[in-house]
Each structure stands twice: as structure tokens, then as C-alpha cells.
Design a protein around this nucleic acid. Structure first.
Length: 376
DNA sequence: GAGCCGTGGTA
DNA sequence: TTACCAAGGCT
């Protein structure tokens, strides 16, 4: 194959028999495309301009883990408005951060976010190397590389699901995931430029999000079309190959709605703070009967009383589906009003449940309870 | 390596 | 409606 040092030669220089695309041409073509088509995002600087605040890069990358740009937007705005620096976040109360994260999912991210902010604040600032970043809580191989490249201009190989898809197609890697990961990483390294590694990473992700999509990739618009082996072979959409998924179990559980009127005449609802680990760990919630991915709940209410059904919330988690049966309690004796018996319990104003910081499954249950009350 | 861990959009 | 899955990390 004739080597080419001229980006202008790309993509015509592609050799059909080559095992890999022309690396120089791929990076140059992608960066040129990015300069013209980069998405404008709140946590991102324009191509070729100084890098954004590492705090904002880090915060956005953690929020974007397995989460869409559209979903992250309002949360990023809220977090940066409430806690403008990593030191502000480090000083925040755990409950405030968890409540602010409510609805975004994968709540271990919020717990690690706070731990990371406190570690960084204690250090004085973010580490500026990939290895230094990788040692922080919540930063795995992807996020450490992304922050190193985007915030600090480091030459790091950034591989997320977008990059996996783009590279699997570009090199026609048809080994199924996850076994293909080492080959994909090695291939990514061959096309990652020394200069502008951060823009390159973001360009790959933009390409994956807008052109090289999972379904119906828009190959006719792709700046890497001439270098793409999968496209040349007419099988871009078929790559990467993934192992089949396991079926999700259907679980049954109960949540319990308990109200009181306090001394000032204010209606309140009993909420609990869940244990710091595991499902919805550290989040405020309604009392429940211990349902989990592994088993149905035991069905028993936390206190004696009269319970009536207020409906069912159907909710899909990553690894199981849940029917959450909502029971509304009444008829508690004055000596038996719950609260003291239930670990982590507190009373929350009934009129302010939307600000209780409930994860979505419990927010749905709360809306059901509040709506049901109007039916009489 | 494989299981666990949320949510909302899309086809 | 069902199924897939998005800027993954941790154990």
C-alpha cells in the first residue's frame, strides 16, 4: 500500500486489501468534519479553543455514563448552578447531592461523585494525568481517558460504546463483544492522533451519535466512508456483533404510603433513606417490603394498620421488571404512628413530594397516591 | 468475565 | 407493546 502523508489524498488513498484504514487520513478527516459539525453542548468548548474547566468536563462525563445527552442537560445545569466548583460540591450535604441526582439513575455515580469531589478538593485540584484521574472514585478506564484528553489535552485512547461501534465498523471487527474489546482498543490507538486527542475523542462520539448510529447508520454522510471496511463490505449495520441478552425476571413488590398531620396542621408523608449500597442506595424512598432483583417482596407492611390498594406502578429496571403495588395505610393508633420503628424514616410535607428526591419508581408511586386521593 | 446497577427515548 | 440501549464503573 502506498503510504500517504497528505490528508487531501484521503479517502481516495484507501487500499481495499489493507487490514487497517490509513490512520493519518482517518484522524484528519474526522477532525475536519468535527470542526464543521461539532455539536454545541454546555460542557464543551468549541473545536480548537482552550479546554473547558476540568470540573465541568468531569461532571459531564460522569453524568453521561450510560445516559443520553438530552437527559443530562437539565442536571448539568442544576449541578453547576448549585455547586459552581468542585470545592462547593465537596462541601455539600450527601442528602442534597443524592436528591439533586434523583431521576438520573445509576445512583452509585452520585455517591462516587461526592467522594471524588472531596478527594479532589483535598488534593487541591484535579490530577492532570490519566493515571491520576483513574485512581479517583467513579473514574474507570473510559472516564479517566476522556477527562485527560478533553480537559488536559493528554494523548489518551478514549473508548466508549460509540467508539467501539465506529471502530468495529471501520476495521470490520466481527468478533462479538465483549471479547472484541482488546482488538477494538488496539485499533483505536492506531487512529488516535497525538495532537487534539480530546477533539478526536469527542468527534468519534459525535460521529457515533449522529452518523454511525446503532440502527440505520447514515453512511452516505460519513466523513470516514472511504476508509470504512464494513461499509465497503455492505455490513456496517451488522457490526459490532453482540452477545444475546438474558431475559429479565418479573418481580412483585409493595410500597407503603403513610400520612400524618403534624402539630401545625401540615400533612406529611413518611419517607425513608435507603442503605448506602445496593439498589437505589442512599436515596430517599417510600417504605417498602424488601423487593429486589433476586426476589419478590415479603408483602408485609412496616406497621399494623388498615391498608387499601391504591394501584400498581410498572417499572423497568436494567435487569428486572417490577410491579410495585402501592398500599395506603390508615387506622393507626396514636401510640402506633410509625416513624420511630422504621430505620431512616422522616416526615416529608405531602404538598412537596416532588422535591423529596425520590428515584423514579417511587416518584411514580407518590404521584399515584396523590392522584388517588382526589378520586375520593 | 459476568452480574449488578436507572432511566427515558426510539423503532 | 416489546426490545434495545446511551459519553460505564464496581465487585
Amino acid at each position: 500500500m502506498q503510504a500517504s502523508g497528505h490528508p487531501d489524498d484521503f479517502p481516495a488513498q484507501r487500499d481495499e486489501t489493507a487490514s487497517v484504514p490509513a490512520s493519518h487520513g482517518v484522524a484528519a478527516a474526522l477532525l475536519a468534519w468535527y470542526d464543521a459539525h461539532a455539536r454545541v453542548l454546555p460542557w464543551r468548548s468549541r473545536p480548537g479553543t482552550p479546554a473547558p474547566d476540568p470540573y465541568r468536563v468531569w461532571l459531564s462525563e460522569v453524568m453521561l455514563q450510560q445516559t443520553t445527552v438530552a437527559a443530562v442537560g437539565p442536571y448539568f445545569e442544576k449541578f453547576t448552578r448549585t455547586w459552581p466548583t468542585v470545592h462547593d460540591l465537596a462541601a455539600a450535604d450527601d442528602a442534597a447531592v443524592m436528591a439533586a441526582w434523583a431521576g438520573l439513575g445509576y445512583y452509585a455515580r452520585a455517591r462516587n461523585l461526592l467522594a471524588c469531589a472531596r478527594a479532589v478538593s483535598a488534593l487541591g485540584d484535579f490530577p492532570d494525568t490519566e493515571d491520576g484521574l483513574r485512581a479517583l472514585p467513579g473514574l474507570g478506564a473510559y472516564t479517566a481517558a476522556a477527562v485527560a484528553a478533553i480537559a488536559f489535552g493528554r494523548h489518551a485512547v478514549v473508548v466508549d460504546a460509540n467508539v467501539e461501534r465506529v471502530v468495529a465498523r471501520l476495521f470490520a471487527i466481527d468478533v462479538p463483544l465483549p471479547a472484541a474489546r482488546p482488538a477494538i482498543r488496539a485499533a483505536t490507538a492506531t487512529i488516535t492522533p497525538t495532537a487534539r486527542a480530546g477533539d478526536f475523542a469527542q468527534a468519534m462520539m459525535d460521529l457515533g451519535a449522529t452518523i454511525c448510529t446503532v440502527k440505520a447508520p447514515r453512511c452516505l454522510l460519513c466523513p470516514l466512508r472511504g476508509a470504512c471496511r464494513a461499509e465497503a463490505e455492505g455490513r456496517a449495520e451488522a457490526l459490532p456483533v453482540k452477545a444475546p441478552k438474558k431475559a429479565k425476571p418479573q418481580r412483585q413488590g409493595h410500597a407503603f404510603w403513610i400520612e400524618r398531620v403534624d402539630a401545625d396542621g401540615q400533612a406529611q408523608v413518611l419517607v425513608v433513606t435507603r442503605p448506602g449500597k445496593g439498589m437505589l442506595g442512599g436515596m430517599r424512598a417510600l417504605p417498602d417490603d424488601g423487593w429486589s432483583a433476586r426476589a419478590d417482596g415479603h408483602g408485609q407492611p412496616p406497621v399494623a394498620g388498615t391498608w387499601r390498594s391504591a394501584g400498581v406502578v410498572r417499572h423497568a429496571f436494567t435487569h428486572f421488571d417490577l410491579d410495585l403495588h402501592l398500599l395506603v395505610g390508615a387506622g393507626f393508633s396514636p401510640a402506633n404512628i410509625p416513624g420511630a420503628h422504621i430505620p431512616g424514616a422522616q416526615w416529608w410535607p405531602r404538598s412537596d413530594m416532588e422535591n423529596a428526591g425520590l428515584p423514579t419508581v417511587f416518584a411514580k408511586a407518590a404521584r399515584l397516591a396523590l392522584a388517588g386521593a382526589h378520586e375520593g
